[in-house]
Nucleic acid binder design. Structure first.
Lengths: 184, 184
DNA sequence: TTTTAGATATATCGAAGCGATATATCCTTT
DNA sequence: AAAGGATATATCGCTTCGATATATCTAAAA
């Protein structure tokens, strides 16, 4: 059976404890969103498919009058997750409108490209800050034996800070082109 | 008129000289692909739309019996491109299956996560190398006054090398967890 | 010399993903 | 009592992606 990577996100998210579709969406938004997002339009149909395939199992868990279904991973689901984790990763995509604008910046007077770099830098610093604000929560969970979410989160912080620093360097290079040659 | 970012990729690609859809696809694959890809399924319909909107203009330029249309940017198209370049960028997406697998790696015995990090590192080193092989071509064009494609290309090389180095560090951390505490 | 493989050129399809929104219930605050 | 926001499930339209179909041209291999 062929499963999408998003299916494995769901398997991973229910692998420690049963969760509802809504909870999964919230978790994804708090954690993997920066390198793998998922929408309701993916999550709910996928929960149905995984349930029919026997990889997860839905259990009614209403809160008051509002009905609610939480899904738990089955032994087959756990096996499928582990089998997937052992395959080398194959999807690497990026969509960066800032780099695109920088690439075509020759169509504008040079001093205007600086504005794009500044906006990119501000954005990256903002993301880094947001990730930092999540860090204490991830650190708390780290004590329970799973170091990977924290490792990935810190990687995200480092990446955004590295990117911001690159933008700064490129801005300096644009403002003083001679400097590049002096240092090389 | 609302245009997608991919429409501006096309405007940018025909802004220096007229090109066919096939040439645009090839150019994108050689340059912006790493932060903004485009498929034939986007390019050809978009060429039609941009042409109808008067932002580009198609001219028959057959090669022998094979018909061929090259598109040139119009003054309105150039204005639209510049106006877009002046807006702050707003799309930042990433899909990294490797980080996803690392995030869920707690579901496997610890020594197996190392394999994911190694695969990620190999991949990044490979991309960096491929980008380096393009560098001389970009460097040649740099002399003609547009420094931005080369700047973006070198940014891509740096990014991939930074990422590879991060993978290496994380691998070392996994293999010797005590080290992390000693250095902090 | 044939043929075959690969590049050029345009076009379209299905599957997947994304963002927004509809519906409804619950809880907390004003 | 009303309003606003969180919980919960679901769906729709649009964009994008990858693969592929069709056809012509060129260069190399058999």
């Amino acid at each position: 059976m062929e499963l999408s990577a998003t299916a494995y996100v769901i398997l991973g998210m229910v692998s420690r404890e049963p969760r509802s579709g809504y909870e999964i969406k919230g978790l994804v938004d708090d954690t993997t969103r920066f390198f793998w997002a998922a929408s309701y339009g993916q999550i709910y149909p996928e929960l149905k498919r995984l349930s029919e395939a026997g990889l997860i199992e839905g259990v009614d868990a209403p809160r008051g009058e509002r009905k609610r279904t939480v899904y738990a991973i089955t032994p087959e689901g756990r096996a499928a997750l582990q089998q997937w984790l052992r395959q080398p990763p194959g999807i690497y995509e990026m969509r960066e409108e800032g780099l695109l604008k920088l690439f075509f910046a020759g169509a504008l007077p040079p001093e205007e490209a600086v504005a794009t770099l500044r906006a990119m830098r501000e954005h990256r610093l903002g993301v880094a800050e947001r990730l930092r604000s999540i860090e204490p929560k991830a650190l708390a969970k780290d004590g329970e034996g799973d170091p990977f979410p924290l490792m990935v989160l810190r990687g995200g912080i480092e990446f955004n800070e590295w990117f911001a620093e690159w933008c700064e360097r490129m801005e300096a290079q644009l403002l003083d082109p001679a400097r590049e040659k002096r240092s090389s």
